[in-house]
């Protein structure tokens, strides 16, 4: 669904705007794609200029594999099941742990954005409600006590 919005004509003031033109963008509209790509670009720039998270995400599972792999390499056979080696057993766990820590780290930027006020910049923008920040919208929060 494609919609267009009219930017206000400052010389005319409010008279330059018609209600019909002020419709928000729909899902998968060009505007939705534009804002999604822009936010993704921001995350990639952060990744490029602050690569510690990426490095930690690669180094940490390697460390688990190498360290614990070496540590328990000579355990008695069958201790971790007869159908698999210790390496196979460990790899499955490392994959899950990597996914878990990756997801945890993915939430940290949103938390820092909220803490330092950047999230407000996203919330006051006319972005689509299905955008990931939607759950911060006041209308969707439970009524205050």
């Amino acid at each position: 669904m494609t919609t267009t919005s009219v930017k206000p004509n400052l010389s005319q003031g409010i008279a330059g705007i018609t209600q019909a033109n002020l419709t928000p963008p729909g899902l998968f509209s060009p505007e939705f794609v534009q804002e999604t790509l822009a936010l993704a670009k921001r995350l990639f720039i952060q990744l490029q200029r602050r690569p510690s998270t990426l490095i930690a995400g690669i180094v940490q599972p390697l460390m688990w594999l190498v360290l614990f792999g070496a540590l328990f390499k000579n355990v008695p056979q069958g201790m971790f099941g007869v159908s698999q080696s210790y390496g196979q057993f460990l790899c499955a766990g490392v994959i899950v742990f990597t996914a878990f820590s990756g997801a945890l780290n993915a939430g940290l930027p949103v938390m820092f954005d909220r803490e330092f006020g950047f999230l407000n910049r996203l919330l006051v923008a006319p972005s689509h409600p299905d955008f990931p920040s939607f759950w911060h919208r006041p209308s969707l929060l439970p009524p205050s006590a």
Partner: peptide
Amino acid sequence: LQLQAALYH
């Protein structure tokens, strides 16, 4: 500013 411009379409 590029990000801001994209957010405001």
